[in-house]
Design a protein around this nucleic acid. Structure first.
Lengths: 335, 335
DNA sequence: CTGAAAGCGCTTACAG
DNA sequence: CTGAAAGCGCTTACAG
């Protein structure tokens, strides 16, 4: 494991000269530089990031903290982030923490292993974020808004998404509607639900408690929740369901079909995200388009600006969403 | 950002005492320890991993290097790894590199940011691995076998998988069979293909060049490749296809159905991986069960053993696979 | 243009 | 039981 010391010895110069040469400082003569570069190459020298970091140098490393990488959503997000930071010569590392655990990623971030981080993890709470903010670690939140120095947020307009779904179903004539939650900890889920519910409320329609399901944001969760619902309620069921993401919607659709019911004749289903998968395999799902790739790109861009000193944080951006009407929604069945 | 210096000052002791106390050394009296812990807590002290690493200390961090996290495969793997290392108090960070880029992850690994790493990235070549091996960085390869000190490998028996598929199709009576490649760089793809081809060869059947497609391991790639194939070849087509993974198989099935052909009456399709997704939504796909969760777990276990000094590497484990026969395969159409 | 020296935050023999 | 000191690999004023 060659160090600058080894290079210095071999080149017959001091370690300072090596360090300067390696950093291509104008202080060092071209001739010396070249000699040193050559030796560094021969020795397969790699600078030690740790030592460098101790001196407060940048690492060109960005962290992404998530607690889940399953499903079609996250990869797309990662791709957006990567495409952006790649243009600026940064690299990405992902901390994927089990949701049940203490947020050890906060420790890592505290150590400034990365220059800054993008957060999409509900178990990193406000207190954690405050600690990081105080340590001057640039942060971009992707799932909620918090106003603090060195902290920005880039999110999608979940509330509007829920509203658009409600309006669509209302216009089709649905009066008894249901909602399938992802996770109650999730701000995104909450906003979708609020938008959905409040829009119906405006028209004097509220959601019955029994028509509110929990699907855990997964296909399996959606399937099970819907299956149970149908078994327990016979024909006393809502005419339309809004599921907080597409995967649950897909699971719900499977359960509905298994029961011998048709979509949308018996039940209309709306998802959220517009994951690519739906193009080929699933029922043509009515859903809300979540610009997740752009979300990743924009969040990364925000972070890069903070790292550059072009922004000091406290910026809050909200991306627009739109409803994509396909074949899983229609007029309600006669009841 | 509190350091041990700050704690030392506040506690009126030396930094060595603080360091020992923080590491719970038996050298320090309980009373002093408690005083120091209390102050550390008040100051919200977090040890600096970098400084610690400089002294060659462990970080309890394991790295996973991949170049793709899309698809249902990787998350399952990550989950297996996490479940294992979590029991041992380790944390995971993922380097997800664009395949097109130089392997900068090798630099990170060289810096010993992580204690050891699991590799599943075809663009980290043998030379890179040799560099890391020489630097004593414990490594477990998950997609190929390389014998080197400090390097182990845990892979699945891809060759057998291909063989099982071939035998199944042969027994059904298929004589003209096709193969859809994932990526030619992938050892896994290669082994699957070899197993498949050699088994048919034994029975005197070889694969026609025109029946070999490229699907890029993605659903979209599988869809496009099959669509093109069907358009170009009319009815002069294979009676069965083995796709190097399930996602391509799912894409291929969509293309086949779109063309108005039936599965398995017109074409039999076999995938590889047995991804969960197929349970609900897709055609009941005949496939090879890839124990990917166990693969992650076992690879992580291997790495932990190396970190513990219980193994010095050069271990090579191969996991068994089995064929799962569902409804996407049947007797060949009459030709 | 080059080098000696201090320092980043920690650990760890060694001495007391 | 506690502390002074060296050192991990690097950077960077400062002096020459």
């Amino acid at each position: 494991m060659a160090t600058i010391k080894d290079i210095a010895k071999k080149a017959g110069v001091s370690i300072s000269t090596v360090s300067y040469a390696l950093n291509n400082s104008s202080k060092i003569s071209q001739k010396t530089k070249e000699k040193i570069w050559k030796i560094a190459n021969e020795l397969n020298y790699k600078p030690n990031t740790f030592a460098r970091s101790l001196k407060g140098k940048k690492r060109n490393l960005i962290g992404l903290v998530v607690h889940e990488i399953r499903g079609p959503y996250y990869p797309e997000l990662v791709r957006g982030i990567q495409d952006m930071i790649d243009m600026y010569g940064y690299n990405l590392i992902i901390f994927c923490e089990l949701e049940s655990k203490e947020a050890t990623s906060v420790d890592f971030l505290s150590n400034k292993i990365v220059d800054g981080a993008l957060l999409l993890s509900s178990h990193i709470n406000k207190k954690h974020i405050e600690i990081l903010s105080k340590k001057d670690i640039p942060l971009v939140l992707m799932d909620r808004k918090i106003k603090m120095p060195k902290v920005s947020s880039v999110i999608i307009n979940n509330h509007k998404g829920g509203k658009l779904v409600a309006r669509h179903l209302y216009e089709l004539g649905h009066k008894r509607i249901g909602y399938m939650h992802g996770s109650l900890d999730s701000m995104e889920n909450k906003s979708r639900f609020d938008g959905f519910r409040s829009e119906f409320k405006k028209n004097g329609i509220s959601i019955r408690r029994k028509d509110i399901l929990m699907g855990n944001f997964t296909e399996e969760g959606g399937y099970k929740a819907m299956k149970k619902y149908l078994e327990e309620n016979g024909s006393d069921i809502a005419t339309a369901f809004f599921c907080a993401n597409d995967e649950m919607a897909i699971g719900a659709i499977s359960a509905i079909k298994e029961k011998g019911l048709s979509i949308p004749q018996d039940i209309s289903i709306v998802g959220f995200d517009n994951i690519l998968f739906s193009t080929y395999t699933t029922h043509k799902l009515t859903t809300v388009k979540n610009p997740v790739y752009d979300l990743g790109k924009l969040a990364a861009y925000q972070l890069l600006n903070m790292l550059d000193g072009k922004s000091s944080g406290e910026v809050s951006i909200e991306l627009d969403v739109e409803l994509v009407i396909r074949e899983s929604t229609g007029k309600p069945r006669k009841t």
